[in-house]
Design a binder for these strands. Structure first.
Lengths: 140, 140
DNA sequence: CTTAGTGCAAAACATTTGCAAATGT
DNA sequence: ACATTTGCAAATGTTTTGCACTAAG
């Protein structure tokens, strides 16, 4: 049924030098089928298990790191304890809802950053992350 | 000798509802004496021990969290594993040197952010973090 | 004295790793 | 068949917690 999609994901994995194993295909499906997502390892693992793909937690960790190296996903540093992975690798920024620990995309076009400072000698800019931290507005 | 400074730190702590204990004073001294700093718990602990204040790691954790709640320091989310604490609580941004895991301040004045998107319904902006990730420039 | 703070060791998490068994090519 | 990948369980690294002991007011 979802065979067309799986084929293309298999190709993508192969292009990255990753063997398209059952687990990797299933994880990639979950990651990319539903559009842009922000997930912890734990969340993805649970989704996979719920979807009937009993992959181990260690494999989810390993797979997400492989995907990161392959440039399929990106690591998000928003909160100390858990690592978030972002399936949207295009240039964009994030809302982070404190308390809920929820991450939302901000289209890059909607933010203008000017006057970026010169990086120190011998350094170049790898990436600019903007995180807008949100809290519930207290209604009084 | 450094008594004037210690007195004022004692007052600051007291104002935050924190008893100025030996350990807290020593840690606050290390944090604030040398200007703006970006430290992990481990680093601060080592500094304290080196300075002849044999505080325990757990106390450094507890103290930094208390300082954070009191608004004396700020948590920096730059890198997944370790938590950085920033002694500069004014509005500013950061360079993060990947590989070195080093954090550098960027004066806020030098970056202009325009077109900030509207926060979702019922939310307000708590803080805007800009992290410019740097990598060593490859000289070719 | 009384209460809050500290240190230690153990617990709790998140993440990584080693190795035998399973899978992909 | 052969190399890679997986799963498990154990190891690691970081942070938190429980509780007896110590220090501050």
């Amino acid at each position: 049924m979802v065979h067309v999609k799986e084929l293309s994901i298999e190709t993508r994995l192969r292009d990255c030098g990753l063997r398209p194993t059952r687990q990797r295909i299933a994880l990639a499906d979950l990651l990319f089928a539903k559009g842009d997502r922000h997930l912890t390892v734990e969340e993805l693992h649970e989704e996979a298990v719920d979807a009937g793909v009993p992959v181990s937690l260690a494999t989810v960790y390993n797979t997400l790191h492989q995907f990161t190296e392959a440039g399929l996903v990106r690591v998000l540093a928003v909160e100390g304890s858990r690592t978030y992975f972002d399936t949207n690798i295009s240039d964009h920024h994030h809302f982070f809802v404190e308390g809920d620990n929820e991450v939302l995309d901000i289209p890059v076009s909607s933010i203008e950053i000017g006057n970026l400072p010169e990086p120190p000698e011998g350094m170049e800019i790898a990436h600019v992350d903007v995180i807008i931290r949100l809290r519930a507005k207290k209604n009084r």
